[in-house]
C-alpha cells in the first residue's frame, strides 16, 4: 500500500452536505472544553485530588477520530482521558463524580482521573503508565477478529509514550498479526510536542514519529490535529481500511495542549508564554467555528447556545459530584480476588 506522508488539510467541498454532523462535533468539542475548565477549577478548589491532566487544545484529535466510533469498537487512552470518555457517551455527571472520588463515579471512585473506565460505552480505560496500554489495544484488536466481528480497537497515546519497551513490543506484534488480518487497530499519536516537559526532539531520536511505524509494517499518516475536518477525513479513511483488512493503521495528529502537563505544572519552564499564546491562535474550536460560520453552516446564535449548554453540562456535573456521597467503605474490598 502506498503511504502518504504529507500533512493533510481539509477541503471545503461537501462540508455543507454533512452540516448536522459538524454541528454535533462542534458541540462535543465545546463540551470537552467547558468540562475540562471545570475540572481545573475544581482541582484548584481542592475538590479533585491526585493528578489531573486536561485535554484543552487537543479537542479536535479525539473528537475527529471518535466520530467514526461504532458500537462494539473498544477505545484505550493514556491518563489524559476525559475527552475520550465524554465522546463515547459516558454520563458527564458520573465522570465528574469519579474525579471527585465519589461512590457514584463511573468506577465507584476507585479509578479517578487517570483511570476513567466505561466498558458499556466501549471505553476500556485510561492508563497511568505511559505507553503501557498499547499492548492491551493490540490484544483487544486480536480478540475482536478472533470473535469474527468487524469492530476495531482505537488506542490514543502521546508522543512521550513511544519510547518504552512495550510500545515496541505491542506494535511489532500488531504489525505481525495484521499480516493475517488479526489486528484491526487504529493507533493515534497525540503528538502535542512534549513528553511532560521534554520536547519531541529531546526525547525521540527520530522526530518523524509516524515513520517509526514503518519499522512495524504499519501504514501511517500525519494530520493537522487542530483541524477537526482533516482529522475526521483521515480517520474515516483509516477506519474503513482497518475494518476491511484487519490490519493496524497509525495516525500521527500534530496538536498542542494549552494547559500544563498536569494541574501541578504551574511554571512550565520548558516552553515560553509566547509559544503558548501563538499556539492558542490555532485553537481547534475557534478554527472550526470560523470555518463553519464562513460556510454558513452555523450561526453565532447557535454557537452561543452550544456554549451555554456546555457550560450548563459542566456546571451540573460539578453540582452532581459535589452532592454525591463518598464511596461506601465496603467498596474498598470489592472487585478484587
Amino acid at each position: 500500500m502506498a503511504r502518504k506522508k504529507e500533512t493533510h488539510g481539509s477541503s471545503t467541498h461537501a462540508l455543507a452536505a454533512r452540516a448536522a454532523e459538524w454541528k454535533t462535533i462542534l458541540r462535543k468539542m465545546i463540551v470537552i472544553r467547558r468540562f475540562e475548565e471545570a475540572t481545573e477549577r475544581e482541582f484548584r478548589r481542592g475538590k479533585i485530588g491526585g493528578y489531573l491532566h486536561v485535554y484543552t487544545g487537543q479537542e479536535a484529535v479525539a473528537t475527529g477520530i471518535l466520530a467514526t466510533y461504532r458500537q462494539g469498537d473498544v477505545v484505550y487512552a493514556g491518563y489524559r482521558d476525559h475527552a475520550q470518555t465524554l465522546l463515547l457517551g459516558s454520563d458527564p455527571n458520573g465522570i465528574m463524580a469519579e474525579l471527585f472520588g465519589k461512590g457514584n463515579g463511573i468506577s465507584h471512585g476507585k479509578g479517578g482521573s487517570m483511570h476513567l473506565f466505561d466498558a458499556a460505552h466501549g471505553f476500556y480505560g485510561g492508563y497511568g503508565i505511559v505507553g503501557g496500554h498499547l499492548t492491551l489495544a493490540a490484544g483487544s484488536a486480536y480478540a475482536l477478529r478472533y470473535k469474527e466481528t468487524e469492530s476495531i480497537a482505537v488506542c490514543f497515546f502521546g508522543d512521550g509514550a513511544m519510547n518504552i519497551g512495550s510500545f515496541h513490543e505491542a506494535l511489532n506484534m500488531a504489525g505481525l498479526w495484521g499480516r493475517s488480518g488479526m489486528c484491526p487497530a487504529l493507533f493515534v499519536i497525540e503528538n502535542n510536542g512534549y513528553a511532560m516537559g521534554t520536547a519531541v526532539d529531546r526525547h525521540s531520536a527520530l522526530t518523524d514519529l509516524g515513520a517509526r511505524f514503518d519499522a512495524y509494517a504499519i501504514p501511517n499518516e500525519k494530520v493537522d490535529g487542530q483541524d477537526v475536518f482533516a482529522v475526521h477525513a483521515l480517520a474515516e479513511r483509516a477506519v474503513a481500511t482497518i475494518r476491511e483488512t484487519g490490519r493496524p493503521f497509525c495516525i500521527e495528529a500534530q496538536t498542542y495542549r494549552f494547559s500544563g502537563h498536569g494541574a501541578a505544572d504551574i511554571l512550565q519552564p520548558y516552553r515560553s508564554k509566547n509559544e503558548v499564546e501563538e499556539q492558542k491562535q490555532r485553537d481547534p474550536i475557534r478554527l472550526m467555528i470560523t470555518r463553519l460560520t464562513e460556510e454558513k453552516i452555523v450561526t453565532t446564535e447557535e454557537v452561543e447556545a452550544m456554549e451555554a449548554e456546555a457550560q450548563q453540562i459542566a456546571q451540573r456535573a460539578v453540582e452532581y459530584a459535589e452532592q454525591s456521597p463518598q464511596p461506601d467503605p465496603a467498596e474498598l474490598f470489592t472487585d478484587i480476588v
Binding site: V74, A119, Y124, G132, H133, L134, T135, L136, A137, A138, G139, S140, A141, Y142, A143, L144, Y146, K147, A153, G165, S166, E169, A170, N172, M173, L176, M182
Partner: peptide
C-alpha cells in the same frame, strides 16, 4: 489462531493477553 507463536516479547505477550481477556477471551 488459538496457539500463537509470539516474538520474544514478554510485555507484548502479557499486554495483548490482557486486552484479550477484557473482551472475554
Amino acid at each position: 489462531n488459538r496457539v500463537i507463536d509470539t516474538p520474544i516479547a514478554e510485555a507484548g505477550m502479557v499486554g495483548t493477553a490482557i486486552g484479550m481477556a477484557m473482551l472475554g477471551l
